[in-house]
Design a protein around this nucleic acid. Structure first.
Lengths: 156, 156
DNA sequence: GGTGAAACTCTACACAG
DNA sequence: CTGTGTAGAGTTTCACC
C-alpha cells in the first residue's frame, strides 16, 4: 500500500487478499496465504493496516430477503418542502426499518431512498402511513425493482 | 427455523446469531456462543442450515471506495428503445466495472443503475463513452448522490 | 434440536532481514 | 517497514445424545 496525492494505492498482494475476502469474508486466511505464497501472519498485518487506513470498512453476512418473504424492492424519489430541513427528514427515515438506503441527490428530488417490503401492499402502507407522514414530504415517485441483475462492489 | 406457508421463519437464536454476523462477518463464533449460552458447534450447525436454506447468501468484506479515490456515486435512469432486448443491454452493463447495480424498474425508465466513479469527469466519460455507446440506449437521467446517510440490510 | 473433543485455523507477539 | 515462527484462542467437523 502506497500513498500518492493523499490517495491510497493498493499493491498486488493487498488486491489479491481483498478480492478473496470481498467474495467470502470467512475464507480461511491460511488458504489465501498458500495461494499467494506468503505467511498467514503477513496477511493479518496487511489486513490490520487496511482496516486502520479505512480501506476496509467492515464485513457483513449477506441475508437473502426473498427467503424471508421480502419480495418487493423499490426506489422512491422524495420531494421535500423547501423550508424542511433534510437532516430531520433523514432522522425520521432512519426510524423506518424498511428504508435500507437514503441519498441526497442532485436532480428533481431532494432525497432518493431504497425500501424493501414483503409485497406491494406492504409497500403501499410504508408509502402512505410512514413516508407520507414525515413532515415536509410533499410528493413521492416510486420505482419498483422488478429484477436486480447486477449487485457488486467496486472492482480492485 | 420453521417453515410456514412456504416461507422461512427464524427463531430467536437464529436471529441473534445473524444480528451479530451481519454486523461483523468475522466475529468469533465462540464469542457469540457465550453471549447466547449455547455451544459453538450448535451455532455452526445452525449456520450450515441457514446457508443451505438460502437465508444466508454469503459474506463480504466491505471496501470504502472513498479512500481509494472513488468519490462520485450516481444513479442513472436509462431509457431503452422499445425494440431493444433488455438482457443484451444488461450484458453490456455488466462489462462496465463502474456499474455496481442494475434494476429493471417500473416507471419512466427501462433500467435504473448505480455507478461509482472517481470524480465527475470520470462519471461523464462513463456516461458518454460507455453507457451511451450501448445499443438501444436512447436517453439517460443522472442523479448524483451527494451524501448517503443510510446504508443497511433488512432488520431481523 | 443439542454436546465434547480432535484437527485445523486465527491472531497477537517477539523478533529477523 | 514487511516479513516469519510460534503459542494460545477460536473454528469446524465428527461421533454421539
Amino acid at each position: 500500500m502506497r500513498k500518492t496525492n493523499n490517495l491510497l494505492e493498493l499493491d498486488g498482494i493487498d488486491k489479491k487478499i481483498l478480492r478473496h475476502l470481498m467474495e467470502d469474508a470467512r475464507k480461511p486466511i491460511l488458504e489465501i496465504a498458500r495461494k499467494i505464497g506468503i505467511s498467514g501472519a503477513a496477511i493479518h498485518q496487511r489486513l490490520r493496516k487496511l482496516e486502520s487506513t479505512g480501506v476496509i470498512s467492515g464485513s457483513k453476512f449477506v441475508i437473502n430477503p426473498r427467503v424471508l418473504g421480502y419480495t418487493t424492492m423499490a426506489y422512491i424519489g422524495i420531494y421535500l418542502d423547501r423550508a424542511m430541513s433534510n437532516p430531520r427528514a433523514v432522522g425520521d427515515l432512519k426510524k423506518i426499518p424498511e428504508v435500507l438506503e437514503c441519498h441526497y441527490t442532485t436532480g428533481n428530488w431532494s432525497i432518493l431512498i431504497k425500501v424493501l417490503c414483503m409485497d406491494n401492499e406492504h409497500l403501499m402502507q410504508v408509502l402512505n402511513k410512514k413516508i407520507q407522514a414525515i413532515e415536509g414530504v410533499s410528493r413521492t415517485e416510486t420505482f419498483i425493482s422488478l429484477d436486480q441483475q447486477i449487485d457488486r462492489q467496486i472492482s480492485i
